[in-house]
Amino acid sequence: MAELKLRLKFLFVSLLNTFSVPVLLSTLFDPWRRDEMKVSGAPINVELHAVWMNIISRLIGAVIRATTLLTAGLLLLIAALVGALALLLWLGWPMFVLICLWQVVRHA
């Protein structure tokens, strides 16, 4: 059982990292591709423009990362459901075959 838990943990970590979930979460509001304007000692309108552009860059980053995170979550959920269903089918398959066999014998 301990090994099964370990394997499930490896599976979970791998899936999370396939979508870079930890790094996307920790940099959710960072500027998109570190694209930010740095001005110092410039006129106030240039400074304000830089602040505005940087906010946009961060927003773009946040939207793309959040979308990716949501997609990842959805895919993980689907994978978990499909996995559980496949497991149930795999376990129940012999019973299904036995029922079929019983039906064959009964009607023979």
């Binding site: 490896f10 990292n17 979508f19 870079s20 940099t27 591709r33 990362r65």
Partner: peptide, 21 residues
């Protein structure tokens, strides 16, 4: 497939999005 050494902990989709182009 499920060895610890094979567990992916980096380099996934979006891993480079917090760095510059």
């Amino acid at each position: 497939a499920w060895r610890k050494a094979k567990v992916k902990t980096g380099g996934g989709l979006g891993g480079n999005w917090s760095s510059g182009a």
